[in-house]
Computed example of a mutant assay.
Amino acid sequence: MLKDKVCVVTGGAQGIGRCIVETFAKNDAKMVFACDMNAAAMADLESDYSNVRAVELNVCDRQAIENFIAKIKQEFSNIDVLVNNAGITRDNLLDKMSEDDWDMVLDVNLKGVFNMTQAIAPVMIEAGIGSIITMSSVVGTDGNIGQSNYAATKGGVIAMTKGWAKEFSRKGAQVRANCIAPGFIETPMTVDLPEKVLDYMKNKTPLKRMGKPEDIAKGALFLASDNASFITGQTLKIDGGLVI
């Protein structure tokens, strides 16, 4: 599905991001750059897949991003797919949330998406084609208690994506921008939650289970592929019916 495509995935060391990297690699991507600050956690990706490269990258470091993109352009000339997956949480009720926790989440989850997209979108526009996929969340569409900072970022990337879908294509380039909004997903961030919390999540979801990273990766694969060539500016909810 991704034959000859060069892909960049942020937050690629674990969870959903890692699964997306592996899914892209298995579906014939020419090269998948798995970007994360935890380079050690990605070492086995390179040994397992000849078409994956692990890159230590901070999405808040604009100079590092610029240098990284320049190297890709020099070797491959183009970038076909960007998945903005890197993200963090620093949850707390509004009256207890520190300014540092607010700033940190917005810096990574919102500005980090802006940084990566601002660097890569022009490469796609010049080539006349590309797919940008950003991880939002059902929290970004419907809110959640104790996640003012996270909800602000995940709602913000949806708004940016809608604007980008109009902006990038205005001169005829087939550069698409879409979001994925996962529901409750089994990841390293949820594995240590108390059983009663996990049961609550499952019971609240109509399909009565938590999603798996593979569920999200399959959605990303679709949006990255030419099968989604007429889809842009959309938010795909993959949540088991949690938000209907």
Rank of each mutant, 00 (worst) to 15 (best):
residue 141 T to E: 14
residue 34 A to W: 03
residue 151 A to Q: 00
residue 152 A to W: 11
residue 134 T to I: 08
residue 171 K to L: 13
residue 140 G to K: 06
residue 17 G to I: 03
residue 155 G to Y: 02
residue 188 P to A: 05
residue 147 Q to W: 03
residue 88 I to C: 11
residue 136 S to C: 10
residue 222 F to E: 07
residue 54 A to V: 02
residue 9 V to Q: 01
residue 158 I to Q: 15
residue 18 R to N: 15
residue 204 K to N: 14
residue 137 S to Q: 02
residue 87 G to R: 04
residue 105 V to P: 11
residue 56 E to R: 15
residue 21 V to E: 05
residue 160 M to V: 02
residue 127 A to M: 04
residue 232 T to W: 02
residue 16 I to N: 01
residue 47 S to M: 11
residue 71 K to I: 12
residue 157 V to W: 06
residue 15 G to E: 02
residue 104 M to K: 15
residue 72 I to Y: 14
residue 131 S to W: 04
residue 26 K to F: 01
residue 70 A to M: 12
residue 206 P to A: 02
residue 82 L to Q: 07
residue 175 V to A: 12
residue 221 L to A: 13
residue 58 N to E: 11
residue 226 D to W: 02
residue 7 C to P: 01
residue 120 I to W: 07
residue 178 N to T: 08
residue 234 Q to P: 00
residue 227 N to K: 12
residue 242 L to V: 05
residue 138 V to S: 06
residue 144 N to H: 12
residue 83 V to E: 00
residue 21 V to S: 08
residue 22 E to G: 12
residue 177 A to P: 04
residue 162 K to M: 13
residue 115 N to I: 00
residue 179 C to M: 02
residue 60 C to T: 13
residue 84 N to H: 10
residue 130 G to L: 07
residue 135 M to R: 00
residue 87 G to T: 06
residue 86 A to S: 08
residue 214 E to V: 10
residue 29 A to P: 03
residue 154 K to Y: 03
residue 202 K to W: 00
residue 108 V to I: 15
residue 178 N to R: 14
residue 149 N to V: 09
residue 132 I to W: 00
residue 219 G to E: 05
residue 229 S to V: 07
residue 20 I to P: 04
residue 63 Q to K: 15
residue 237 K to G: 05
residue 172 G to D: 03
residue 155 G to N: 05
residue 198 L to G: 01
residue 63 Q to W: 00
residue 230 F to V: 13
residue 22 E to Y: 08
residue 148 S to A: 15
residue 46 E to Q: 14
residue 143 G to Q: 06
residue 171 K to H: 14
residue 40 A to H: 11
residue 11 G to D: 01
residue 88 I to R: 12
residue 209 R to A: 05
residue 160 M to W: 11
residue 90 R to G: 08
residue 214 E to T: 13
residue 232 T to E: 00
residue 88 I to Q: 09
residue 217 A to H: 04
residue 159 A to K: 10
residue 25 A to M: 10
residue 79 I to Q: 05
residue 13 A to G: 14
residue 78 N to H: 15
residue 65 I to D: 00
residue 47 S to V: 12
residue 204 K to G: 05
residue 6 V to L: 07
residue 115 N to R: 01
residue 171 K to S: 13
residue 42 M to C: 09
residue 9 V to T: 05
residue 141 T to D: 08
residue 112 G to S: 10
residue 39 A to W: 00
residue 81 V to C: 01
residue 196 K to Q: 11
residue 106 L to M: 14
residue 154 K to M: 06
residue 145 I to E: 09
residue 86 A to E: 04
residue 62 R to I: 10
residue 185 I to N: 07
residue 152 A to F: 12
residue 173 A to F: 13
residue 223 L to N: 10
residue 174 Q to I: 12
residue 131 S to G: 10
residue 154 K to D: 06
residue 19 C to H: 07
residue 15 G to W: 03
residue 112 G to T: 12
residue 68 F to L: 11
residue 228 A to T: 06
residue 139 V to K: 02
residue 232 T to I: 01
residue 176 R to Y: 06
residue 196 K to H: 09
residue 90 R to F: 09
residue 238 I to C: 05
residue 164 W to N: 10
residue 29 A to H: 02
residue 171 K to R: 13
residue 126 E to R: 15
residue 102 W to P: 01
residue 39 A to Y: 12
